[in-house]
């Protein structure tokens, strides 16, 4: 098996996905090394999808011990109540490896705090995914990934809600797309920081070769961005729900140790309104209904929601690595109550 060729066995195993994204993407996946921080329900879904996809190396970093509520969505855990209190990763690694033994899978049970003091550790990876982190840790990590020029995905969930934040620094994708009624124009901003930089018509076909360039903001900009109201028309702004400020508010609130604990509504409200002011969105979006839901569902894991968020994130990583599709830039919100999944560029 050479570096730039897939073996017959690999082609047979990955047949149905190679038919979608081609041999070149599969080779890119096979040469990519990824770090994933924390294996909660969302992390579990991401790891499952990426191991199946056929990456080169995946390291999982998580120093936690198994809690009873982890059984809600972390399906690599053994079906055995007695593992509660034991370190999580050694209990799941074999089940993950079984999915696809072509992937180099490793686990690390040191604490994130101590590890990222050493930049060399992060430097070994082509891409970092961080789940279930608070804002302070996200920003600290992002400083390092920025410095090392490594793309960073951040994700997590709160019951029926979830989010993906991306700082992929910059990205250029080239893809063949069907030419529509109106030709694509160089310079078109598909969304903020997502621009068509080249269009060539493909010979003997109704296709165009489209180059899209994405530029990303550092994550600290997202948390104080004034861009959201500019990206909504009046009706959308009027209909904007409290999901964005409440998800943002929870980045500053510590995850309770007891899963039955409800977040104090008043604390949440004050925080969320502060966010509304910061992001220049109406404070009325933070309704009592939404406050009540978020106070109960904050940090709660729910398998089908984790599947949607983890699926979308793993998919985007594959798009990113393929260099064929333009990735999420830069905030995706899942509201599974209202079946909405907007992407904002903040």
């Amino acid at each position: 098996m050479t570096k730039d060729e897939l073996s017959a066995q690999e082609i047979a195993l990955y047949d149905r996905q190679i038919r979608l994204w081609g041999m070149a993407t599969q080779l890119r996946l096979r040469s990519s090394k990824i770090l994933i921080i924390n294996l909660g329900a969302v992390g579990t879904e991401i790891v499952k999808n990426l191991v199946l996809g056929g990456l080169n190396t995946i390291e999982i970093l998580d120093d936690s011990v198994v809690k009873p509520e982890d059984f809600a969505g972390q399906f690599f855990l053994p079906n055995d109540d007695s593992v509660v209190g034991q370190t999580k990763l050694p209990l799941v690694v074999d089940r993950i490896r079984e999915l696809n033994n072509r992937v180099n899978l490793s686990i690390n049970t040191e604490s994130l705090d101590s590890l990222i003091a050493n930049k060399q550790y992060v430097k070994a990876f082509d891409l970092v995914i961080a789940t279930e982190l608070d804002k302070q840790m996200i920003l600290k990590l992002n400083d390092i990934t920025r410095e090392l020029n490594i793309p960073l995905y951040v994700s997590g969930m709160h019951g029926m809600f979830g989010y993906i934040l991306t700082d992929l620094i910059e990205h250029t994708s080239v893809s063949v797309k069907e030419a529509g009624n109106q030709p694509r124009v160089v310079g078109t901003e598909l969304s903020r920081n997502k621009t068509i930089t080249n269009v060539e018509s493909k010979e003997k076909s109704n296709d165009e070769i489209v180059t899209i360039r994405d530029v990303f903001s550092p994550l600290k900009e997202i948390f104080k961005s004034q861009e959201l109201p500019k990206q909504l028309n009046k009706r959308q702004l009027k209909r904007l729900s409290g999901v964005v400020p409440l998800i943002f508010a929870l980045f500053d609130i510590t995850r309770p140790n007891d899963p039955d604990t409800v977040i104090d509504v008043e604390v949440l409200r004050v925080k969320a309104i502060e966010i509304c002011n910061l992001l220049n969105i109406p404070a009325e979006t933070v309704t009592p209904d939404y406050l009540d839901v978020f106070s109960r569902q904050a940090f709660a894991e729910f398998a089908p929601v984790a599947a949607v968020i983890g699926g979308a994130l793993a998919q985007d990583i594959i798009q990113f690595l393929s260099k064929k599709e333009s990735p999420i830039n830069n905030v995706l919100i899942l509201d599974a109550v209202n079946s909405e999944m907007p992407i904002y560029s903040l």
Binding site: R16, Q17, R19, L20, N49, P304, V305, A307, V308, A312
Partner: peptide, 19 residues
């Protein structure tokens, strides 16, 4: 043959379960 991938199936199944 229709191409098929894990991620789309995961997303759609998640929504099917939720709905």
């Amino acid at each position: 043959i229709i191409p098929a991938i894990a991620t789309t199936n995961a997303i759609i199944s998640g929504f099917a379960c939720l709905a």
